[in-house]
């Protein structure tokens, strides 16, 4: 080499990681729905939140990152939704919500992946999905503090906030507390906590007391609704449930905090 100083630098850099930042450049807020345990209502909350907020006129995206058990498409009744190829993948719109899920590639087949595969799949999906200008991108996560949660925090750290979900059970609270600790150490802010499937208002006293200690201000409760199962797959029915009404109320408070410093773009 004739010139001085020719470092052959940055070996084995994954270029997809660099583009992920740009892919969410026009997304106002990225909010992941997370929990310590499974079956507490993350998918329900993520999907209903997307429907409720889209109905309200916000531009909303929904990304299902539960690779082992994707279910947002079942809640939405969007089994046939497919992305469009255009310099990457453009997510289809379902009930006004820009939606992306691994189910669009594997259908209802199983996806037996280990951590390294999960991380790669996540990088690929985030790198090739072209969201339009959104007020909010909601992410549905699997439970726990493993690969999906850690990786989404690494890749979207500059934008990521979370909403935690638990049931009133002490087992579920024990799990969500560990998650909250991890998020705190990663500097990922928590916008609120939802206590789901509440049958008796007395049973939430202990939970509320516990989470106030963590400094989470916005705590909402969602009732147990035996009719919810019948509404799965029909967004119109879902929007008419008691659970959806409470979710709407919860977001009133979240939006106040979240959207305060920036301009809200009309839909």
């Amino acid at each position: 080499m004739p010139e001085v100083d020719t470092p052959r630098e940055v070996k084995y850099l994954d270029p997809r990681v660099a583009i992920i930042r740009h892919r969410v450049e026009h997304v106002g807020n990225v909010v992941a729905i997370a929990s310590g345990k499974g079956g507490v209502g993350k998918t329900t909350l993520a999907t209903l939140s997307a429907l409720v907020l889209s109905k309200r006129g916000l531009r909303v995206g929904l990304l299902d990152l539960d690779f082992n058990c994707p279910a947002c498409h079942i809640v939405l009744g969007a089994q046939d939704a497919k992305p469009r190829e255009e310099y990457g993948l453009v997510p289809p719109k379902v009930y006004g919500v820009e939606f992306m899920s691994i189910a669009m590639f594997v259908g209802d087949k199983e996806v037996p992946m280990r951590g390294v595969d999960i991380v790669n799949a996540m990088i690929e999906i985030l790198a090739i999905t072209r969201w339009s200008k959104l007020d909010l991108l909601l992410i549905d996560l699997p439970p726990g503090t493993s690969d999906e949660v850690l990786e989404v925090a690494r890749l979207l750290k500059h934008k990521l906030k979370t909403i935690l979900v638990t049931t009133p059970s002490r087992l579920s609270i024990a799990g969500v507390r560990k998650l909250w600790e991890v998020l705190k150490k990663l500097n990922v802010p928590t916008l609120g906590l939802v206590i789901n499937m509440v049958r008796n208002i007395n049973e939430i006293k202990a939970v509320e007391e516990e989470v106030r200690k963590w400094g989470i201000e916005n705590v909402a409760t969602l009732p147990y609704d035996s009719e919810l199962e019948n509404a799965i797959g029909s967004p119109d029915k879902l929007l008419n449930t008691e659970v959806a009404r409470e979710i709407r109320r919860f977001w009133d408070k979240v939006l106040e905090v979240m959207m305060a410093p920036q301009q809200r773009t009309p839909g």
Binding site: V4, K11, P15, N120
Partner: peptide
């Protein structure tokens, strides 16, 4: 699998 930048040659 994946994509990587195996080397980037820089010149002053």
């Amino acid at each position: 699998r994946g994509v990587c930048l195996k080397s980037i040659l820089l010149e002053k």
